[in-house]
Each structure stands twice: as C-alpha cells, then as structure tokens.
C-alpha cells in the first residue's frame, strides 16, 4: 500500500514547486492512474515514489514504512516501466534482460524466454536492441519491469509507442498483474488506457490533484443520465434513463421506426477531465 500526504517537490533548477501538496493512497492490488497533460507532474510524482528524486517534503509511506527509511531492498519490491525505451542498443534483448535480472537476489518467477513470448518478442530475443522498433523496445521495457516479480509496479505511459493490438495486450497484462495482487501506479494521458485498466484515477494539473475517483463514478457524475436515440431519417431525441421502460414518449418514438443508433450519454473520461480542470489532456 502507498500513502502520500502533502507531497511537495521542487526541482533544484526551479523556483516554483512541480508537485504542490499531493494527497492520495493506492491500495494493495489496485491499479491507480494519474491523468494529466504533459508537465503536470505525473512522472515527477512517480519518480519521487521510486526514489529517483530525493529532497521532497511531505510524507510518503510504502507498505507502512516511510519511504526515506527504505534501503536498497525497496528496489526488489518495485518494478518500473519507463516512458521511453532505455536499453543497451548493442546488446540483444535477452542480454539486456539477463543483465538487469542479475541484480535481484530472488530467482526470476518465469524464464526470460517466456517473458519474451508473453509480449510476442520471441523471434527478436537474440537480436540486438538497435534493430528493434520503438514498439518492440517498449515491450522490452515492460517485461524488464516485471521480470523480478515485484509487488509494486510503476508504469509511465505504458502504451506509448505501441500499435493498437500491442497496446491492448499490454493493458491486458497489467490487468493480469492486478489479478495477481500487484499494486500498480500508472501515469498516462490516454483516457482510453486509464478507463480500461484503472480502478481509480486522479486528475493532476499544475502539480495539484483536482479529482480522484473511479472512472465509472467520474463519468457518471459528470455525464447525463439519458439515452440518445437517432432514427434512420435523422430524427434525434434524448430520454431520461430513469424508468425508461415505462416512458411512453420513448416507446412511441422507437416503435415501428428504424433506429439508426441508441446510446447512453455518459461523459467520456476526457470530457470529465475538461469539465473538472478546464484543460485539455493534449499539450
């Protein structure tokens, strides 16, 4: 479990803090997402949590222990999937993984071959990473993060640079990790990714959290409880969802007519974000 209270962080080269008093908790076995535009502090918050950035103020507890009190054994418990691929280009994928696996005292929970198979990289296992596409390198990032079977995982834009098929597979793997009881902290500006995998999301803008809840509740809260019906002859009408089965107006509207489209008027996560923050996620 991760508990963060009033987290403030200022980069040494900046005067103003990048993180301005964050408060949140991530429960064991939960996928928690930070959603925000570039520069909002998403990655900075993660870097504090995986101890790359020191000198923060506030309180951070991981598994009931203050972050500053954790020694190097902390890194055995966490895995980090970086936003950009970072591998030794002259080494093969397998050599890269073997090298970093050697730093962990615990034996790998699964073979390197099966990890490559899991992300469809079997054919590239013995090829130098410099011959990999960006998507392949990102998948290598992913399996490097999970290879030592950590309890807590940090993924920074886990689907960035991936084609839709592989992005879907990575999201499914993240959900499988959640099923296995892992605590997962994701940062993304992809609404679709957040909606798909996160149990709860927090909107972060200019270093502050402006809303934290499950995607469903946020969409429900900011959406319209109505159904929109569009007929083939371009007639469109909205009806409240409450007791819709007994809504005579609705039943008359659809009766004997060809319905082109019918949809509930939930807000998308992106719409919620814009409503809550007044900002777009892109840029």
């Amino acid at each position: 479990m991760i508990k963060v209270e009033n987290l403030v962080y200022t980069y040494p080269s900046n005067e103003a803090p990048t993180l301005k008093g964050l408060n949140f908790e991530i429960n064991t076995g939960e996928v928690f997402g930070f959603l925000g535009p570039s520069g909002s502090g998403k990655s900075t918050a993660q870097k504090v949590l995986y101890k790359i950035l020191k000198g923060f103020s506030g309180k951070v507890e991981v598994n009931g222990k203050d972050l500053t009190e954790w020694d190097n054994s902390y890194f055995e418990k966490i895995g980090v999937g970086f936003e950009l691929p970072n591998h030794y280009m002259k080494l093969t994928g397998k050599e890269n993984l073997e090298l970093f696996a050697s730093f962990y005292p615990k034996a790998l929970s699964q073979s390197i071959e099966s990890l490559f198979e899991m992300v469809d990289l079997t054919e590239a296992i013995n090829k130098p990473v410099e011959s990999y596409s960006k998507g392949m390198k990102m998948r290598l990032n992913f399996i490097r993060a999970i290879q030592h079977d950590p309890d807590i995982l940090f993924f920074d834009e886990p689907t960035s640079g991936l084609d839709p098929v592989n992005a879907h597979k990575i999201k499914q793997h993240i959900l499988n990790l959640k099923e296995a009881g892992k605590t997962i902290f994701v940062t993304t500006h992809s609404m679709e990714t957040a909606d798909h995998i996160c149990d709860r999301v927090a909107f972060i803008v200019d270093g502050k959290l402006v809303a934290t809840d499950s995607p469903q509740r946020l969409k429900h809260q900011y959406g319209k409880e109505a159904v929109k019906v569009e007929l083939v002859k371009n007639e469109v009408q909205e009806f409240p969802l409450a007791d819709i089965g007994n809504n005579q107006e609705f039943l008359t509207f659809i009766k004997g007519k060809e319905v082109k489209r019918m949809q509930t008027l939930d807000a998308t996560l992106e719409e919620v974000f814009i409503k809550v923050t007044g900002k777009s996620l892109i840029g």
Binding site: Y50, K51, I52, N72, S73, F75, E76, I78, V80, F82, L84, N86, H87, Y88, M89, F100, F103, Y104, P105, R144
Partner: peptide
C-alpha cells in the same frame, strides 16, 4: 552512451549501491 540512451536511469531503480 548509457546516459544518452537513458539506460543509466534503470540503474537508479535496481538494488545496486
């Protein structure tokens, strides 16, 4: 080279003093 390719960041999150 390690710094340029950002592999150095990975050494920051492994149990290596």
């Amino acid at each position: 080279d390690e710094k340029e390719t950002e592999v150095s960041k990975v050494y920051g999150i492994v149990p290596l003093s």
